[in-house]
Design a protein around this nucleic acid. Structure first.
Lengths: 365, 365
DNA sequence: CTGAAAGCGCTTACAG
DNA sequence: CTGAAAGCGCTTACAG
């Protein structure tokens, strides 16, 4: 490996001081036009390249960020990362992905800021390494209360809108017995469940119709070994680094399990809002293998808006929170912090409906 | 943001020199046990963390790598990246993904080495920025001749084995009229096509059966606008940075287009080996929407071994080149270079068959 | 065992 | 307009 020229080499070759080389290269301060051009010419011929590490040491900036996510395979995480890395790139930054979430290691990393695509990970970070390590933090959160508890910048998923928008859509299509498919445990599951419940109870009161809400909910869980690779569902689960298999899309499995439960149940639901699109697809696959047709026999709606919906067997109808956009936004907020542009602490995002082929219109005309 | 303590602050607080602090922190050189412990205690209380940038400037190492790929969405790229980032992490390195492949920017990046998951990108780099910028390069290549033309480390996909293994598998299942589905242009398409052709001509000679080979090949292409986001098929196509849509899985589209061509054709093929799994799935989707059943009416085999085959409607039978493993290997070769472990220049990999549900056994018993 | 000093490659006030 | 010098935060041969 050829040793690269330094500013001292250039200065020597040009017979000037290193300061002048700096001024020429950076086009800063006063410098005679002739000498500047001569220096640049010589620098070019020597293949001189300013050492980025030295620049960073000087500026105390690396223009590098770190993103913590438990994987890069699940749709939400992949799309979040895609948005984040593109946004960073556009503004001259780079992003690392730390899939293992070993926060301690951040002390060895050359980064200016930390991004989380999930508040549970952020919480853990803030309460451990973050206690005495001071880097700006941006977190995409499902939980508005998180932003009160922690003095970090937030990009917020408006779950109230998400769930209600989904229910509205289904109501408009004539559905009344609208159930949910949830992962059994998980804070974010509970957040969406409570919003659903509040809304459905309201509907019961307003309409005077007696509905047994419990009977509309399907809660599924997968075994621990299946769950091994999906810390994003429960970040307290340390991701096992089995060498051979990172392909376990946990949400699909949860959806399949939910399908089994559905098939054995007597639920009167005509439509099911699933916690996310991946779960919804697992569910669809599961019930269709057993002869139940979607949407003819049961309408299914997802949440997220994953890329794959364009490519899977049936395009899902979903409430899109646009994970790619969440990644983009989080990164831009981070960079705004770093560049003293004073971004807002709370940045709400809005979901929107993406129509597909999985909801049947049962309105009576 | 609280200013973090430096080694000078610690030295002052402890009443020693900065050199002693270094020795204590790094556990190097001679230092009295007592003073060492006292220094470490004080450092800890001050929340001292060695500045990683300064360490890098000193060592001229960043433990950071850059990976060039045209996207993170296509299965091959996603899995390659997944393997690469995990491998790097395990050895204490980090990887950037540069999706835009603007090679010039590498001069500003804090990286020790460069990885390519596609030789065409590497070729472009080597002939431009690489000419006078000296960083070690590792490339995963489809083309053995690439390794002779360029003095860089290679991880090689053994396409000879890949294609012949696929044909062998299909022959074993009784197929003789074995065709291919290819993207119309593309160097790697041609590589696999030629191997297929050689093999099939050999079979014609050996068996004495007269087969019209041309009639077995389907070549599909998609329009330029569709192709916009998939520079990986042709790296000379600059990736457009449209803001709203990175979801275009080009290979799916090519497969769909191939399905249209297939439906209009009179090919006598009983089995088709597709350039990759994504194309194969697009093809399957395309023909099945038109009432052709896979594998009952036509057997389909892919190449790659994508994660999604576990989750798509039908598990594909494929020749796995294990993209995740290619990412892992490339990264380990890179790190071996950096750590003077003298890895081999040519690192062959072996494909293996993954059975699925898309090939029909038509042997006569 | 410990400290003063030079060095990693750069920038930027300060003098001239 | 230009250079010598101090500084970014660290390491490490060299004296003592």
């Amino acid at each position: 490996m050829k040793k690269t020229a330094t500013r001292a080499d250039v200065a020597r070759a040009a017979g000037v001081s290193v300061a002048s080389v700096s001024r020429a290269v950076n086009n800063s301060g006063y410098i005679k036009k002739d000498t500047k051009e001569r220096i640049l010419e010589i620098a070019k011929n020597m293949g001189y390249n300013p050492n980025p590490i030295a620049l960073s040491l000087q500026s105390q900036k690396t223009r590098q960020l770190i993103l913590y996510q438990n994987d890069i395979i699940t749709s939400y995480n992949l799309q979040f990362f895609n948005g984040a890395t593109r946004a960073a790139y556009k503004r001259g930054y780079s992003i690392f992905l730390d899939i293992n979430c070993e926060f301690d290691k951040i002390r060895r990393h050359l980064v200016d800021g930390v991004i989380f695509s999930l508040e549970a990970l952020a919480e853990k970070y803030i309460n451990t390494v973050g206690v005495n390590y001071y880097l700006p933090v941006v977190v995409t959160s499902n939980d508005a209360s998180f932003s009160f508890a922690h003095p970090v910048h937030n990009v917020l998923i408006d779950n109230h809108k998400v769930v209600n928008m989904g229910i509205d859509y289904l109501m408009n299509k004539g559905h009344r017995k609208i159930g949910m498919v949830l992962q059994d445990k998980g804070k974010n599951s509970e957040i969406r469940y409570r919003i659903w419940k509040t809304r459905m109870e309201q509907y019961k009161r307003d309409s005077g119709i007696n509905i047994d809400l419990d009977e509309l909910v399907i809660r599924a869980e997968i075994s621990n070994s299946e769950n091994m690779h999906i810390g994003h569902l429960d970040p307290t689960l340390r991701l096992q680094s089995s060498d051979d298999n990172y392909t376990n899309y946990a949400s699909f499995s949860i959806g399949k399990r939910a399908a089994e439960i559905y098939l054995k149940s007597n639920t009167s639901a005509t439509a099911l809002l699933c916690f996310n699109d991946d779960i919804a697809y697992g569910f669809i696959r599961g019930v269709e293998k057993n002869g139940v047709r979607v949407p003819e026999d049961i309408s299914v709606m997802g949440i997220d808006g994953i890329y794959l919906r364009e490519w899977l067997e049936k395009k899902i109808t979903t409430v899109s929170i646009d994970p790619e956009n969440l990644g983009t936004l989080s990164t831009n907020v981070m960079i705004d912090i770093l560049e003293d542009k004073n971004p807002k602490y709370i940045n709400w995002t809005s979901p929107k409906i993406l129509e597909g082929e999985t909801v049947k219109d049962i309105t009576v005309r």
